[in-house]
Design a protein around this nucleic acid. Structure first.
Length: 422
DNA sequence: TGGGGTTAT
DNA sequence: ATAACCC
C-alpha cells in the first residue's frame, strides 16, 4: 500500500501545457482547498482545471451483445451523446469522452446563489472525499456528475445500454475514475483526490497513453510505478524518449492531461482486414483482397463520402516479430472515385487492379512469400456535394457532381448521375 | 488474439 | 510509410 508519503500538495487535476498557467493553477487550487471560506464566484480565467470532462464506458457485455446482434445501434450512443454536447470524442467502440465544461457553465449561471448550497452529487465520489460546496471546482464537478447521470439515463431509456461514467477535470482522470465502480455506475473525482487515484495504479502501463513499447522502455530505465515516473529525471527521460513523449507521459504520471476532447465526427477511414496462417500465392492474395474490397465498397456506399486514397497492408510471416506491417498506398483515380457507390458500374475491376499493383510493389511474387494478414483501407474521405471545394471547382461543378477536390484538374462532367442517391 | 480505429513522425 | 497509441 502506498501511504502517500508527504506529498507537498494534493494538487488538482491540472493540465495546462505552459508552466505559467500550471503554476497559477497550483496556487488557485491550493487556495480553494485550504480556505474553507467563500470562494470567489468568478473564476480568474478559464484555467484548465475548471474543465469538466466525462468518460462514458458502455458495459462490455451490452456493447458486445446489443451491438453485434443489432448493428443499427452501433452509432447511436455517439448520436445521443452529441445531443448533450457536440464535443464528443470516440475511443474505440464503446467509450466516449464528452467535454461538459460549457454545459456546466450554463447550468451554473442558471442557479441562484442560494441554490448553490443545495447542489448534490450523482453517483459515487472517488475516495469518499467530502464535498465542499464553497468550492466552485467541486460545484462544477457535481453538476458534471448530474449531467453524466442524465446521459446514462438517456442511454438506457433510448437504447437499452448501460455503462459507467467518470467525471473529472481532464480526459486521463475521467477515464481512470470511470472504472472505479464497475458495472453501470459512475464516479466523480474531486481535485484533492487526484494523487490518490493515479497512485492507485499498480503499473505504469495502466496509464492510458503509455503503451507496450513505452512501458518496456521505461522498465529498462528502472521505472515501474507511477511514483517512479513522477520522480525520474526529466532530462534523462527526454534524452531517452524524446522531449515530446517524455514531457507528455511525465505529466500524465501526475494526472495532468491538457489534451482537448476532439469531436470525432464521422470516421476518417474504413478498413477491412483478414488474418490467416498462410497466404503464399498471388491468386490467393487476390481472392482475399476481392473479399475485403467487396465489403468495403458496401460500407463506403453507406457512408456517402468518397475515399480518395486506397491502401494495402500486409503482414509477413517473419518469426513472430511483434509488429511488422507494411503498406503501400496511392490515390484513387478520379474516374474511379466517381463510380464509387453508384453500384451501377464495375468498380471492383479497376480497384483490384490498383490493389494488385500495390501488392506487387510490396511483395516480389517471383520469390516465395508467406503472408499472415491482408488489409485494405479506404482513407482520405471527402464529402461530395459540399461547398467546401475551391473556387475553380465551385464554378466548374454541376450541383451533384463528384468532381475530385484533391486533384488539380477537375474535369467537366460528361454526364451527371444521381450517384449520391442509390 | 483479431479487427477495427487514431495521431505523430 | 511507418510506428506508436487506443479499444
Amino acid at each position: 500500500m502506498e501511504k502517500l508519503g508527504v506529498e507537498p500538495e494534493e494538487e488538482g487535476g491540472g493540465d495546462e501545457g505552459d508552466t505559467e498557467a500550471w503554476a497559477m493553477e497550483l496556487a488557485d487550487v491550493g487556495a480553494a482547498a485550504s480556505s474553507q471560506g467563500v470562494r470567489d464566484q468568478v473564476l480568474p480565467t478559464r484555467n484548465s482545471s475548471s474543465r469538466v470532462i466525462v468518460h462514458v464506458d458502455l458495459d462490455c457485455f451490452y456493447a458486445q451483445v446489443e451491438m453485434i446482434s443489432n448493428p443499427e445501434l452501433k452509432d447511436k450512443p455517439l448520436e445521443l451523446l452529441e445531443e448533450f454536447s457536440p464535443v464528443v470524442e470516440r475511443l474505440g467502440f464503446d467509450e466516449n469522452f464528452v467535454d461538459l465544461t460549457e454545459m456546466v457553465e450554463k447550468r451554473l449561471q442558471q442557479l441562484q446563489s442560494d441554490e448553490l448550497s443545495a447542489v448534490t452529487v450523482s453517483g459515487h465520489v472517488y475516495n469518499n472525499q467530502s464535498i465542499n460546496l464553497h468550492d466552485i471546482l467541486h460545484i462544477r464537478l457535481l453538476i458534471g456528475s448530474q449531467i453524466a447521470a442524465e446521459m446514462r439515463e438517456a442511454m438506457y431509456n433510448h437504447l437499452g445500454l448501460t455503462g459507467c461514467a467518470g467525471v473529472a477535470s481532464n480526459k486521463l482522470l475521467a477515464k481512470l475514475v470511470s472504472g472505479v465502480f464497475k458495472p453501470n455506475q459512475q464516479t466523480v473525482l474531486l481535485p484533492e483526490s487526484c494523487q490518490r487515484l493515479i497512485h492507485s495504479l499498480n503499473h505504469i502501463k495502466e496509464i492510458p497513453g503509455i503503451g507496450y513499447k513505452t512501458a518496456k522502455c521505461l522498465e529498462a530505465l528502472g521505472i515501474n510505478s507511477v511514483h517512479d515516473l513522477q520522480t525520474f529525471s526529466s532530462k534523462i527521460l527526454e534524452k531517452e524518449l524524446g522531449i515530446s513523449l517524455a514531457q507528455r507521459i511525465q505529466k500524465l504520471s501526475f494526472g495532468e492531461d491538457n489534451s482537448p476532447v476532439i469531436p470525432s465526427g464521422p470516421p476518417q477511414s474504413f478498413s477491412e482486414e483478414d488474418s490467416f496462417k498462410k497466404c503464399s500465392s498471388e491468386v490467393e492474395a487476390k481472392n482475399k483482397i476481392e473479399e475485403l474490397l467487396a465489403s468495403l465498397l458496401n460500407r463506403v456506399c453507406q457512408d456517402g463520402r468518397k475515399p480518395h486514397t486506397v491502401r494495402l497492408i500486409i503482414r509477413r510471416y517473419s518469426s513472430e516479430k511483434h509488429y511488422g506491417r507494411e503498406s503501400r498506398q496511392c490515390p484513387i483515380p478520379s474516374h474511379v472515385i466517381q463510380k464509387l457507390g453508384t453500384g451501377n458500374y464495375d468498380v471492383m475491376t479497376p480497384m483490384v487492379d490498383i490493389l494488385m499493383k500495390l501488392f506487387r510493389n510490396m511483395v516480389n511474387v517471383k520469390m516465395p512469400f508467406h503472408l499472415t494478414l491482408l488489409s485494405v483501407c479506404f482513407c482520405n474521405l471527402k464529402a461530395v456535394n459540399t461547398a467546401k471545394r475551391g473556387l475553380i471547382d465551385y464554378y466548374l461543378t454541376p450541383s451533384l457532381s463528384t468532381t475530385s477536390c484533391s486533384g488539380k484538374h477537375s474535369f467537366k462532367m460528361k454526364d451527371t448521375h444521381m450517384e449520391d442517391f442509390p
